[in-house]
């Protein structure tokens, strides 16, 4: 089993490399570099071609910096873990081919990692005692997943979004409000200045099952923006009402899943989990009442990063899994280990 794993993440607009070192079950993060591509701000969203170009230009230096931060030379790296998908295929390809070349040239092991499994493993980087069973809510710009995790590597899909991902809804609403990109942090910064009673938005599907839908909420915000006679005045109130609605839906469903499964731990992951408002609401609704412990990684590990990829890769390598030189990027890579949820939970089927 590898003692040093280099992780590489290029699925969207962050170029990231990380180094994990240590014993089999408790690797430690020795180096992590995340290069956030500013270029996309101009466009109000990620431009895939520009993201791919930026990854190619940045990746070697990002890897070098992560190794330097870890105080480790090339010769010490035993394995390379890389995001195989899902994500922007052109961006993924840069990381996958580069990682294959590194592994091949150095006779190293190679493992392709599912990006969302990476998010699932992110809290484990800082909290090595985190262990299933738990319910995971993974929310990012591309995904909204509610998973029952009976064991590492076994995932039961309870629910997913039917339209926009939660992070995508934040980005779109931020654009409607003239807050720029990325939308989540912008809305979170503004929302505390808003009066929660000035606007009230629907909580789509909150009281039924585990599926999510955010497109109607986005439309409700659009109507409110159009009917506002003073957007400057209303902007913080709209941001507050929108954020409250999204977080209420997310945490209500997480709470429902915790009650249905009987698990005592909830894991929050993905870029939206960087939100202190989300973590705060989860703590109030789940932890404070003693219903469940809430595990959430620090913001640096919840954003797209290579440490989570290295950690998930570490786990897969420990199972004896390896990728070969034909590893290819897949924009629609299915989550490994996905199995049907028990019908008693009334969950969606994968």
């Amino acid at each position: 089993m590898a003692d040093v794993v280099l992780g590489i993440e290029t699925s969207c607009d962050e170029t990231s490399a990380a180094v994990l070192v240590g014993e089999r079950r408790r690797p430690e993060l020795a180096g992590l570099v995340i290069l956030s591509q500013d270029v996309h701000r101009v466009f109000g969203g990620v431009v895939p071609e520009l993201a791919s170009r930026a990854h190619l230009a940045a990746l070697p230096a990002v890897v070098d910096r992560a190794l330097a931060e870890a105080g480790i030379g090339w010769s010490a790296v035993d394995a390379v873990a890389v995001t195989q998908g899902p994500g922007l295929v052109g961006a993924l390809l840069v990381g996958v081919v580069y990682a294959k070349a590194l592994a091949y040239a150095g006779d190293r092991e190679l493992i392709g990692v599912h990006h969302m499994e990476g998010h699932l493993f992110a809290p484990l980087v800082e909290d090595p005692d985190l262990a299933p069973p738990f319910v995971a809510l993974l929310v990012s710009g591309g995904h909204t997943l509610l998973l029952d995790v009976p064991a590492w590597g076994r995932y039961r899909l309870l629910g997913a979004t039917r339209d926009d991902a939660a992070g995508e809804a934040f980005d779109k609403v931020a654009t409607l409000l003239g807050l720029g990109y990325p939308g989540g942090p912008a809305i979170e910064r503004l929302a505390p200045q808003g009066d929660p009673t000035r606007f009230s938005f629907p909580r789509p599907m909150r009281d039924e099952g585990y599926e999510f839908s955010f497109s109607g909420l986005k439309t409700a915000v659009l109507r409110a923006v159009r009917s506002s006679d003073d957007l400057e005045r209303d902007r913080p109130h709209l941001a507050r009402a929108f954020q409250d609605a999204v977080l209420d839906v997310l945490i209500t469903k997480l709470e429902r899943a915790i009650r249905a499964t009987g698990h005592r731990t909830a894991v929050l992951g993905g870029g939206v989990a960087c939100s202190r408002a989300l973590a705060g609401l989860a703590a109030r609704r789940l932890s404070d009442g003693g219903l469940a412990r809430v595990a959430v990684a620090s913001p640096r590990l919840n954003a797209d990063n290579a440490a989570m990829i290295a950690r998930a890769g570490w786990y897969r390598l420990g199972l004896g899994e390896r990728s070969d030189w034909t590893l290819d990027a897949r924009a629609d890579l299915p989550l490994p280990g996905l199995e049907p949820a028990p019908t008693t939970l009334g969950a969606a089927h994968p």
């Binding site: 071609e49 190619l56 081919v97 070349a101």
Partner: peptide, 19 residues
Amino acid sequence: SFTGLRIGWSAAKGLAHEA
């Protein structure tokens, strides 16, 4: 091809970087 070029260049950079 934009994507094609990046595949060749990613391979070349990875091989060259390591070796």
